[in-house]
């Protein structure tokens, strides 16, 4: 990587973070935050963490920003200045500065940046790189670590997304024709983006391509950057785009609320189900190698590889549904009839 480029990016990131916190318009702040995330994922890509960069581009710069916009759409967007208690801010500043200084004291103690033989790179990580092929036959080590060596983390990560979806539904969802008293027609902007012909047509064309790409990302995660998360987020984003360019009811015609919930649960079920099957076949939870007993024409190594694909599909289901579900909840303010 080019260090000058890196230097500029790192500086820019700080500036963008500050701007997004300074801007009085919340919509603007969200957009700046999106830009911040995007710069961040450039940095990560520069450091060789393509999978992370990929995810951040989809999640941080994409979906997160859309979540914020959906929230702001239903509420107020301008911050009205108010006289503030500066002593509190100063106190917090002090806390933060002390914490930061404390964190910085350790920087000199870190191994040299980029050292391939630092403990982080040498100990466990090196094992993964050297054994991934022989253990799992998956060349993308990120995928093999994600979906096999540390698949237990990943399963719970999927569960986290599922939890968020269920939790948000529980908090925000209202039955229709029930208390519409609190702020029904709240802050609807005069401009309705779904009426724009250009946007409609453009997204109509884009959505299928996005979805095909997403499927590719899921399926080809063994050999190239990508996997269940990235694919799931892109799938979700395509649906979000669809609903943004038309409106929510159009989306719900294709994919109802019920399916959002059920599919997200099924995603987790696929993942944990694979684990349970492994247990039933007499090995430890998530030990894919025993799946060779039931998968046709596989040895224990290939069984791992195949099981990873199954698991990634489960992840993709859950993530996609969670992204769409969270977005629709936020955008429609829990009523699931109209909204952004």
């Amino acid at each position: 990587m080019i260090w000058q480029f890196d230097l500029i990016l790192l500086t820019l990131v700080v500036i963008f973070a500050l701007i997004s916190l300074r801007v009085k318009d919340l919509m603007g702040a969200s957009i700046v935050f999106g830009a911040y995330s995007f710069l961040m994922c450039l940095i990560w890509a520069g450091m060789g963490a393509v999978d992370v960069a990929f995810t951040e581009a989809a999640v941080g710069a994409g979906v997160s920003t859309v979540f914020m916009i959906a929230t702001i759409y239903n509420t107020g967007r301008m911050i009205k200045p108010r006289p503030q208690d500066m002593s509190f801010k100063l106190l917090m500043m002090l806390v933060v500065v002390i914490t930061g200084a404390f964190l910085l004291t350790a920087v000199n103690d870190f191994p040299e940046w980029g050292d391939p033989y630092s403990p982080v790179n040498d100990h466990v990580a090196a094992y993964y790189l050297t054994h991934s092929m022989s253990d799992t036959a998956v060349p993308n080590v990120v995928t093999s670590v994600l979906a096999d060596y540390r698949s237990f983390d990943t399963m719970f990560e999927t569960a986290v997304v599922f939890v968020a979806l269920i939790g948000i539904y529980g908090i925000i969802r209202r039955r229709r024709k029930q208390d519409d008293s609190d702020s029904d027609t709240d802050a609807l902007p005069p401009y309705d983006p779904s009426e724009s012909l250009i946007i409609r047509q453009a997204s109509r064309m884009m959505v299928p391509f996005m979805q095909i790409f997403a499927l590719y990302v899921v399926a080809h995660g063994h050999h190239s950057p990508g996997g269940g998360f990235q694919g799931g987020v892109i799938l979700g984003a395509s649906l979000i785009l669809y609903s943004m360019s038309y409106n929510l009811p159009t989306l719900f015609k294709k994919m109802t609320e019920k399916w959002i919930i059920l599919l997200s649960a099924i995603g987790v079920l696929i993942f944990s189900g694979v684990g349970v099957i492994c247990m039933m076949l007499g090995s430890n939870f998530l030990d894919y190698s025993v799946l060779s007993q039931i998968l046709p024409a596989t040895d224990s190594v290939m069984a791992r590889s195949h099981a990873m694909l199954i698991v990634e599909i489960g992840v993709a289901f859950t993530v996609m549904c969670a992204m769409v579900g969270i977005y629709t909840s936020l955008a429609s303010n829990g009523r699931f009839d109209k909204g952004l």
Binding site: L262, L269, S272, G273, M279, F285
Partner: peptide
């Protein structure tokens, strides 16, 4: 290979949560 009890105690509620969502919807 030892017993599966350690993981069972974690997995039972996890899987139950999925089924609660699936069945509970109806």
């Amino acid at each position: 290979m030892s017993t599966q009890a350690p993981v069972l105690m974690i997995i039972a509620p996890l899987i139950a949560s999925i089924f609660i969502t699936l069945i509970g919807w109806f």
